[in-house]
Amino acid sequence: MIQPEEKLKLTLEQEKEKMFRIAWKMCGNQDEAEEVLQETALKALKNWNQFRGESLVSTWLYRIASNTCLSRKRKRMVHTVDPIILEEIAHDTEPDMMAGDADWSRDPLAQTLNDELRHALDAAIYKLPETYRLVFVMRDIEGMSGEETAQSLDISVTNVKVRLHRARLFLRNELDAYIKEERGVTS
């Protein structure tokens, strides 16, 4: 028989990679994502006796993690991340992040285009309001279901859809020039 606290630990260990990626996308850097992960674990341990079992443990943990991300953002009173800072972050983390990426071109010109696109992707997603970004990251990037996302964020499934559709359209418009260029190159 698994003890309740063990169940919490097991679930968090199973979900921590996905949680870490979501936190990274929300916070914009690896260090803060690590802090969010630890803070989520701490809050979960502290409030475990308040968990009523009305949702999955993982959903409850995602709710804690997303609230932690949002409250950290609010505390800093930063609503958008400066694209220049994002560029610095991307360059700082590039060597490890790109290791073993088979699709990465060795052509310097293509590399520049890919770098540009990568920065454009980051800049566009950080322009999204946090609540829309969370839904987009959970649904489209992490592949969570509409219901799971709704429960994690404590909103309705309809609300998830509305935010997701708006986020997709916004990002598509922001990246329009890059996608057109890409299609122009390949066609």
């Binding site: 870490f20 490890d96 992040m97 073993g100 699709d103 990037i141 997709r168 359209l169 598509r172």
Partner: peptide, 27 residues
């Protein structure tokens, strides 16, 4: 096509984060 491509691009970007070591939780 462009909405689908936008989603694909972000999924590709995610793979870059996959290669980063996720820290252990020190219980």
């Amino acid at each position: 096509r462009t909405i689908s491509r936008t989603i694909d691009l972000y999924r590709q970007r995610r793979q870059e984060v996959d290669s980063v070591h996720v820290p252990e939780i020190d219980w």
